[in-house]
Structure formats: structure tokens, C-alpha cells
Design a protein around this nucleic acid. Sequence first.
DNA 1: ATAGGGTTAG
Length: 528
Amino acid sequence: MRYQVRQGVLQSTRIISPAPISSSTLSTIQDCINNDARRLFDQNPASCDTVAWNSIINGLIRHNQVQRAHQLFDQMPVRNVVSWNTMMSGLSDPRQLHQLFLQMNRAGERPNQFTFSTLISGFLNRFHVILVPQLHALILHLGLHSNVFVASALMRGYTQLRDRHGLCHVFDDVLIKDVSTWNALVVGYMDLGFTVEAQIAFDMMPEVNIISWTTLVNGYIKNRNINQARSIFNQMTQKNVVSWTAMIKGYVQHDKYVDAIQVFISMLKSGTHPNHFTFSTLLDACAGCSMFLFGKQLHSCIFKSGMCCEVVLLTSLIDMYTKCGDIEAALCIFGCMENKNTVSWNSIIGGCARHGLAKRALREFEKMTESGVKPDHVTYINLLSACVHGGLVEEGERHFHSMGVTYGIQAAMKHYTCMVDLYGKAGALDKAEKLVKEMPFEPDAGVWGALLAACGLHSCYELGEFAANGLDNLARQNASIYSMLMKLHGEKGAWSRVIEMRNKMTETSGKKQKAGSRIEFLLIQNHK
DNA sequence: ATAGGGTTAG
């Protein structure tokens, strides 16, 4: 596929060339080999040695047949440390991983460097990361701390625990550090917000690679210094699809959509091919500022490139279409999706809500639960906001109460905001008030704002002042509070207070923000 | 026969 920008339109053309053996052909060949191995193994497992058992188990894991792998693992006559490590690499649930590790120790098998790098990696982003210091102690005891794989896993763990000293200790204990070790240090410093230290570490590195550079760029983006990120990005002598995508993502995160697209165009001009990460990011940009035409052009590029078969990308497309106003297109893609996960369902439910299709949103929710996909807290935010748009008080109440009972999802601030909004818009101000007063935490600006808006809508002075006080106490002074109170006072005929509110409003210098729109072609035309 | 560091969606 080749991409070019012609007359302001992103175009792609298919390049026909003799195909070498594709990766799918290779994996088919690999599968045949694996199947042959399986057949030999199945004929007489008893004659196979531990190495053969391990290979089979590894093959099954690589082909996502973890259950079968586990069965064979349990049947093995003799297990060695590789068997345990291989089995551990197949487990994604940290609890199972933990259990297997304990079992391994009970069986008298001594863990090695492979064990710890696998184990710790499986604990990252999970509650179990809390075990990292204990594992570190064990690693030191066994003398495995100088292994670069173990060290980088530990460094990521300490970074997640926000333990700067832990991070540095692990790094210092590695005798022969390689690029990855240094990169892990830069990532760690950046994640913990120490940009200066990260930069110093980067400057001290004996050798840097493209990953080091991208790490640095990403670090500055995470630390909200997009200009520094760009400056580093410009210094890169080599860029690949990952670094380009990171820069684009940085601009999208900072709502700088024009810059994001300009970087994308430079990327195409440099001859780097976008991948599904790049397209997801760009679709996110389209959703962010309603670039409908550009979004459709991207869809066309994705379609022609033949890459569109994966959940994340399709979900990005759905989100782009709903946020650009084309709910029909979104529903169409959603209907064709083979694998839907919680996020995909959430985006279609949210999309229906945004388009006022409250009943449809509720129906999609039913289908979601029927298909066995578990809803999460976002599902309920979207579902409840659909109820708000549709004025479906009873449905909203029912779901609000059942989310905890059926799925164990605790109602958070956002859910309460939706409910206050739902009651408020429907005129059930007594219920809205009751909910605000009985909430398990202090209401935030969103909750008070929803209540105040409801009071404005239904001319409820007493409660309106209560809500305005709540907002005031949060020191979130803004013109909308006074504008609402002004309206309420005005309806009562309390003109002196109307003037008072009016003055306060101008003091807080609240000017209504102007509505705006973007014409996507200008972005590209400007660039030419 | 086993392992690490940079980019994606609500």
C-alpha cells in the first residue's frame, strides 16, 4: 500500500508485487510441524523426555491452547525448571501465576532468572505488583539480580509502585547493563515525573537506539511537555512507525489536532507506513474534533489495506462515527463485528445515548449481557446517560440499583451525577435532592451542577441555592452558577439579588464560550 | 525447550 496526499485528499493505492512467502504461510508451515510433533507425542507420551513435553506445552501456549497445556503439564512424569517457567508464561491471571509459583517452590524446584522475569511481568499492572519488593529480596538471595531481564522486570515493578529508590537500586545492581536496562531507567524516571533525571540518564547512555528516543519523546508527552517532546522528536535521525505514532498521539492527547495531522502527513511523505496503532490514534483525533471527512478517508485507507479485522481498530471507527454524527455507520460496523468486548459495547451504547436513541441503547445493553460480555463502570455511565436523554426514570433506577447487586460494580461519582441529572430533568427534584444528601461521598462539581441545572429548569429556588452553595464550597466559582441563580431570583421578583448575581457574574469574568466548528480540509490545505 | 525496553479503542 502506498499513501499520498493529493488535492487535500488522503489517497492510497495498492502496489502489486510478487509476494514472497508470507508470514501466514510460514505460520501454517509451523502449524504442520507442530501438529506432526503432537501426533508423535500423542502416540506415545511415555517415551518422550522432558524436553519434548516442554516443547509441546510451549507450542500449545503459543497457539492459545492454555487449558490443554495445563492438562499436559499436570500429567508430566518429570518436570524441570523449564516446564514450570513455560507453564507460567501461559498464565495471564496473576492469581494462578502466583499459585503456580508457590507450587513450584513446594515441589522443591529452584526458580531461575526466567522464572522471575516471567512472574514479575505477569504481575505488572495488577494488584500483585505489591509483591515485587518481596520477590526482589528472593532474587538477591538467589544472586539473580544482575540478570538484565530480571532487572528490567523489577524496574518496571518499582516504577509502578512509585518507588524511585527501588528503581535506582535495581539498576545499580546490574553489573553489565544493556540498552534495555538503560531504557527501563528512562521510562521509570519519566513515569515518576523526574524528567530532568530521565534526560540525564539518556545523555549518559553508552548507546541509544530508536526505542530510547521514543521513550524520551513519550516521557515528555506524559509529563505534558509537548514542545520538548517535539524538539526531541525532530532530533531523531531515524523514525519508525512507533515513534511517528507516539508523536501523533501526543498531539491528539493535547487537543492539537492540526499538529497531529501535519505529523501524520510528514510520516506518509517519509515513506513510513501507518499501522493499526496509527489509525486508531488518528481516528481518536477525528472523534475529538469531528473531522468527519478525514475520518471517512481513514476508514477507506484501513479498508483497502486489509488490516481492519481487529477489535480495537473497529471500536475506534465506531467511536469516530458516533462522535462525527453518523450513528448509522457506527451501528453498521458494530453489527458486522465478530469479536466484541466491553469497550466495543460501551462505545455503541454511548453512541446511541449521544444520539438520543435511549431505547436502542437499553436494547444493546441487554444484548451485551446476553452475549456474556461483562459490563463495567463505563457501561453503566453510558447506559444511565441514555436514560437521561430519553427521560427513562424507571429504567435508570432499575439499572442503577442492579449494577452493584448483579455485577458488583460500586456506583461512583459519575453514576450519581447521571442519576441526579435523570431525576432533575424529569422534574423529580425531591428524589434528586435525597440522592445528593445520601451519597456515600461528598458531591463534586458535576453533581452540584446537575442539581443546579435541574433547579433552573424547574424553577426551584430553595434547592437551587442549596446546590449553588455546594458548588461555592468547592471554590469552583464560575459564571454559570450566577447565571442560574440570577434566573431563579428573577422568577421570584427579587430584583436586588438579580443585580447582585449579575455583578458577581461579571467579576468572575465569565464569558460564554463561543461555539466553534472545524473544517477538516483547511487543515490539509494549509499544509500545502 | 523458557524471558526484557517504545505506539491503539469506551
